[in-house]
Amino acid sequence: MARYFFDVSNGGDVSDDVGLVFDDAHTASQEALRSLPDMVKDQPLTRMGEKVSVTMRDDHGIPVYRATLTIEGEWLTRQP
């Protein structure tokens, strides 16, 4: 069991000062990855190429993993 911290970047950067306890780094990284759709769901998508990322730090504060999701949309005809 170890505590990991999850800093979120979606437009602005929000650093995590509470953290979450997971069995191991792999489980924590999976949760970080799965959180991306959650986060995107809640934010207004206004720009193309909108990016959301979660950087996971271990309990020494060292970044060990980053998950990123990019939302893209493009017109296939002339933009109406």
């Binding site: 999850f6 979120v8 929000v14 995590d16 000062d17 509470v18 953290g19 979450l20 949760e31 970080a32 799965r34 959180s35 959650d38 986060m39 809640d42 979660v54």
Partner: peptide, 22 residues
């Protein structure tokens, strides 16, 4: 705990953590 909120609200605990901070 954050995992309880996640299980009750259909969210990931990482996102719960982020929203509690907000």
């Amino acid at each position: 705990r954050q995992t309880d909120f996640a299980d009750a609200l259909g969210l990931t605990s990482v996102h719960v953590n982020r929203m509690l901070k907000t």
